[in-house]
Amino acid sequence: MGRDPNPERPATCAQWEAVFGSPPPPYLSVPFMHKAISYEAQCKARGGLPAAARRALNGALKGQKRPGQPQEILSPGAHLVREWNGRTYQVRVVEGGFEMDGRAWRSLSAIAKHITGTDWSGPRFFGLTSRAGRP
């Protein structure tokens, strides 16, 4: 059998377990574990993130908007216009999706991909500042 490619790994895994209370996921690199262990020590010494930042991150994980963040709601009948490569595209919001050039679309991202040929965030492509779900 060959030697361990990183002789620091067993000691680093033991240190991880002492800090976090469980073994590390099997494929974490030693440099990453060192950074995570150092960050945890810094959080313990200095208190970690402020409460407002923790709340905002937890809210983002749950899909909640931040206070004061604009909420984009696209109502049926709304029109979106975007110029791309010299052509103007007009999209109408309809019940359950969007319409462009007489064709129905389920998402703005699908329309943006059709127009550009590459993956785009549809709301970003059409200049909406926050994520807009399907109507």
Rank of each mutant, 00 (worst) to 15 (best):
M1F: 02
G2H: 14
P7E: 11
R9L: 02
P10L: 01
P10R: 05
T12Y: 03
A14R: 03
Q15A: 06
Q15T: 12
Q15S: 10
Q15D: 09
Q15N: 08
W16M: 00
W16Q: 04
E17W: 02
E17P: 03
G21F: 00
P26S: 05
P26K: 09
Y27G: 00
Y27N: 15
S29A: 01
S29D: 11
S29K: 15
M33K: 05
K35E: 01
K35G: 02
K35R: 11
A36C: 14
Y39W: 06
A41S: 14
C43R: 15
K44G: 14
R46V: 09
G48N: 10
G48P: 10
L49Y: 15
A53R: 15
L57H: 11
N58I: 03
G59T: 04
G63K: 10
K65Q: 14
K65W: 12
Q71C: 11
E72L: 10
I73H: 15
L74E: 08
L74C: 03
L74H: 03
S75D: 04
P76M: 11
A78R: 13
R82M: 00
E83A: 04
N85L: 00
T88K: 05
T88P: 02
Y89E: 02
V93Q: 05
V94C: 10
V94Q: 04
E95W: 10
E95V: 06
G96H: 06
G96I: 05
G96Q: 09
G97K: 05
F98G: 04
R103Y: 08
R103S: 11
W105F: 15
W105I: 11
W105S: 11
S109W: 01
A112I: 03
I115W: 08
G117H: 09
G117C: 04
S121H: 09
P123R: 12
R124D: 05
G127L: 12
L128F: 10
A132M: 06
G133K: 12
R134V: 15
P135K: 15
